[in-house]
């Protein structure tokens, strides 16, 4: 008798938790929808100027017609290429050098001041120089993104290696690990959790950078779309660009979270 009562109680508790979970999920979706609804209402009723803030449904309409004409995809394609290429060009050297700096303290002491000194300079401020050196072609955009992704990733990678518990280094040494094993079996996996936080940050910075870089020196891409639409007072088109960037940001973080769960299954 008493046991079945206990089970019932547990079942109720479980159901209560489930309801709570669903409620939280609902809240998460609710906030953007609520914002869009308010926006739509204000814009439609003329409480805000619909020329500056066109209603979301109109923006979606514009999005569909731009998509239908194919114009949109060339902008998306070129921006995606720049983001991904720049991201890789920044992340791969940052991880390699970061692991070396984390493992070998002379390297760390040698490179740290350089990184500390260069990090505060926004890569965008260097864009004029980058344009002079690399020209106005694709390379300059890719380099700009790479430059801004590099710093958060290298700093987190070094921190990740340095914070690996010393005992694991002792274990590796005691069991005869070679330098290569230290690198691949200890430093790399051990620093991954902290490193991935840096990669997440780098991803966000890459998006900020691409838009700004394309506004300044490009003739295609989402940033270019936003900028030229704005100058031509095509605000619906401009909002399409802004929404695309926000969507990219969301999808990239989802993707990276997925990757993180895959490469750090042990946390």
């Amino acid at each position: 008798m008493s046991e079945s009562k206990a089970i019932q109680l547990e079942k109720q508790e479980w159901r209560r938790q489930r309801r709570q979970e669903r409620w939280k999920q609902l809240l998460t979706i609710a906030s953007p929808i609520f914002l869009l609804l308010v926006w739509e209402f204000l814009s439609r009723t003329g409480l805000v100027d619909a020329r500056f803030f066109p209603p979301p449904t109109a923006i979606i309409g514009t999005f569909l017609s731009m998509a239908a004409s194919g114009e949109l995809f060339s902008h998306i394609g070129i921006s995606l290429f720049r983001i991904i290429a720049g991201f890789l060009l920044g992340v791969i050297p940052a991880i390699s050098l970061g692991l070396l700096m984390g493992l070998y303290s002379p390297l760390r002491h040698f490179f740290s001041p350089l990184i500390m000194a260069l990090m505060p300079i926004p890569t965008l401020a260097l864009l004029p120089i980058i344009l002079i050196v690399f020209g106005v072609g694709e390379t300059s955009k890719v380099v700009t993104i790479a430059g801004s992704v590099f710093f958060p990733v290298i700093i987190n990678t070094v921190a990740g290696v340095v914070n690996i518990d010393r005992i694991y280094l002792d274990v590796a040494r005691n069991y005869g690990a070679s330098s290569k094993d230290f690198f691949l079996k200890i430093a790399l996996p051990g620093s991954l959790p902290v490193m991935m936080e840096g990669v997440q940050m780098g991803q966000a910075i890459a998006l900020l950078t691409i838009v700004a870089a394309e506004m300044m020196g490009a003739n295609a891409g989402i940033g270019y779309l936003i900028w030229t639409s704005y100058k031509a007072f095509l605000l619906k088109e401009m909002f399409v660009g802004l929404m695309l960037i926000s969507l990219f940001g969301y999808l990239f973080s989802l993707l990276l979270k997925g990757i993180q769960a895959k490469v750090v299954p042990w946390k």
């Binding site: 005992i167 274990v171 200890i186 996996p189 051990g190 750090v264």
Partner: peptide, 8 residues
Amino acid sequence: EQGVIPWL
């Protein structure tokens, strides 16, 4: 101390 490597 615990010498088991957590990522293996």
